[in-house]
Computed example of a mutant assay.
Amino acid sequence: MGVELTDAAQVKLVDYLSLFAKWNKAYNLSAIRDPEQMLTKHLLDSLSIVNILAKLPGNRYIDVGTGGGLPGIPLSIVFPDKHFTLLDSAGKKMRFLFQVKQALQLENVQVENRRVESFNPETGYDGVLSRAFASLSDMVEATHHLLNSEGRFMAMKGVFPTDELSVLAKHYIVETCHSLDVPGLEGERHMVLIRQEKIQ
């Protein structure tokens, strides 16, 4: 994948996966039960956007509908200098994320247990991340209030979302679409970057 990780980051990523597998039995964080599949479908999938994120300006991101912390937790481990807010309305999953934040000492993570429409941050984010959160139209309409003027929507998708892109409102501009390579994962993965057109 061409991703370079420090030894400390590798240890934390493995510790996170271990906690995920342990808590999943009681909290139903994911339908995937096999740790090896978790490694591929959760951890490596989340890390597949590291090199894209590294090239973008800004250091404040919000992971909307984060669930068990994907992709927010793995990204926060790889980028300790960037801040990640993890947003989800499911209380059980938030309790797990509080535990992860404490156990792994992730000072750059903020956990918010609320619905996206009721979260109004004082400062807009540089990026709104989503992984299987909703259709692109639903995502941008539900989260546009979270971005700053230069911010981007960053949607992780499976197959290239041709139909979803065709029905986006005209003031949303597709900046780029990256094909993602996830070792061991069958099927396509993409990251779509979208910006809001600036009103003159």
Score class of each variant (00 low, 15 high):
M1H: 09
G2R: 08
V3R: 11
T6S: 15
D7A: 13
A8G: 03
Q10I: 00
V11G: 00
V11W: 06
K12I: 02
L13M: 06
V14M: 12
D15L: 12
L17E: 10
L17R: 05
F20L: 15
F20V: 04
A21Y: 09
A21W: 03
K22R: 14
N24V: 00
A26L: 11
L29G: 10
S30C: 11
I32P: 04
D34L: 10
E36V: 15
E36M: 12
M38D: 02
K41G: 04
K41F: 13
L43W: 09
L43K: 07
L43P: 07
L44K: 11
S46L: 09
S46T: 12
L47E: 03
S48C: 08
I49N: 01
N51T: 10
L53N: 12
A54Q: 13
K55Q: 15
L56K: 14
N59F: 02
R60S: 14
I62E: 11
I62H: 09
D63I: 09
G65L: 06
T66R: 04
G69K: 08
G69Q: 10
P71L: 01
G72R: 07
I73K: 10
I73G: 05
P74K: 04
P74F: 05
I77N: 03
V78C: 06
F79Q: 07
F79P: 00
P80L: 12
D81P: 00
D81F: 07
D81S: 13
D81I: 01
K82D: 01
K82F: 10
T85C: 08
A90H: 13
A90F: 03
K92P: 07
K92Y: 09
F98L: 13
Q99K: 15
Q99N: 13
V100R: 09
Q102V: 09
A103K: 13
A103Q: 12
L104C: 11
Q105D: 12
L106M: 07
E107F: 01
N108A: 12
V109F: 07
E112W: 06
N113W: 13
R115E: 04
R115C: 03
R115L: 06
V116E: 06
V116I: 14
D126K: 04
G127T: 08
L129P: 03
L129F: 15
A132L: 10
F133C: 08
A134R: 11
A134F: 08
S137L: 13
D138V: 13
H145E: 07
L146F: 06
L146A: 04
N148Y: 02
S149D: 14
E150I: 00
G151N: 03
R152G: 00
R152A: 04
M156C: 05
M156F: 02
K157C: 04
K157A: 02
F160P: 00
P161Q: 06
S166R: 15
S166D: 09
V167P: 00
V167G: 01
L168P: 04
K170H: 10
K170M: 00
H171F: 07
V174H: 00
S179E: 10
D181C: 07
P183Q: 02
E188A: 15
E188D: 14
R189W: 09
R189D: 05
H190M: 10
M191E: 01
L193D: 01
L193P: 00
I194Q: 05
Q196H: 08
E197D: 08
K198F: 03
Q200F: 11
Q200A: 13
Q200G: 10
